[in-house]
């Protein structure tokens, strides 16, 4: 694949200083010193088999997620063992269409009747930005785990229906109950933080004199109920 490594370099005089472009451009496999011993044939054959299986598994994992054909899914299924063992088989379909951001809102009820609202992701998270990115991932996971159960219902509805909440929502609610002593129950809801269109932003800026609040209430969908979870140790 690509030009033969080292071809350019052999024509260079010793001690010459090739340009940065040539240096970067030279194939990385270009030998610079006396190379180490070559691998024996059996090792090359074993490595070839391993590489071929690995490449097929990585490709299968990426192709097998929806939307995909039956053939692609069957092919991906051949490498379930590989994806499990080596944590490969990701789809890498980053931002195919920038989606609204899920936000999880947990209402913690105390025995004295007071409420506390916990938002994931929090608006401000102390520490490095990566910490908030992890919270965004949790909100995404909760949203994804509840989405399938609520398909067929009115998405803007506050009433989520009778489906059993997924284990992740139950687990997260229990965690919140433990992390906030005195909580008698936790209600989880999920909403989406929408992306405003540029036209709307321009209109608002004109109306408000150049300001636009990306956290304006109108940019959030109605919260969708995930479940009520009593904090009684059950």
């Amino acid at each position: 694949m690509g030009r033969k490594p080292g071809v350019r370099r052999t024509s260079e005089p010793a001690g010459a200083s090739p340009s940065v472009v040539e240096e970067v451009a030279s194939a990385p496999a270009a030998p610079t010193e006396e190379p180490g011993p070559a691998w024996p044939a059996w090792a090359r054959r074993a490595a070839t088999v391993a590489i071929a299986v690995h490449i097929a598994a990585v490709a299968g994992g990426a192709l097998g997620v929806p939307p995909s054909s039956l053939l692609q899914r069957r092919f991906a299924d051949l490498f379930t063992w590989h994806h499990g063992l080596f944590d490969q088989g990701y789809a890498y379909r980053y931002y195919a269409e920038p989606p609204p951001t899920p936000v999880v809102v947990a209402t913690l009820r105390r025995a004295d009747g007071s409420d506390e609202v916990v938002r994931i992701p929090e608006r401000e998270v102390a520490g490095p930005p990566m910490r908030r990115q992890r919270q965004l991932a949790l909100a995404n996971a909760l949203f994804a785990s509840t989405r399938s159960g609520h398909e067929g219902h009115d998405h803007g509805d506050d009433d989520g229906g009778d489906e059993e909440p997924p284990w992740l929502a139950r687990s997260y609610a229990k965690y919140l109950g433990r992390a906030h002593p005195g909580t008698s129950s936790v209600t989880l809801k999920v909403q989406q933080h929408l992306i405003p269109g540029p036209d709307r932003v321009l209109e608002m800026k004109e109306e408000t004199g150049g300001r636009f609040d990306l956290f304006d209430k109108s940019l959030f969908t109605s919260p969708r109920w995930i479940g009520d979870f009593p904090c009684d140790g059950s």
């Binding site: 379909r93 980053y94 931002y95 920038p98 992701p121 933080h193 992306i195 540029p198 932003v201 956290f215």
Partner: peptide, 29 residues
């Protein structure tokens, strides 16, 4: 894969996909 997947998204065709990330309140600083 990232490039091919984006070809499915209309906003990558109409040229406004990056607006979607730059105006996502939860992401931007």
């Amino acid at each position: 894969m990232a490039g091919l997947a984006k070809l499915q998204g209309p906003s990558w065709w109409n040229g406004m996909a990056l607006w979607g990330t730059m105006a996502a309140g939860e992401f931007v600083a």
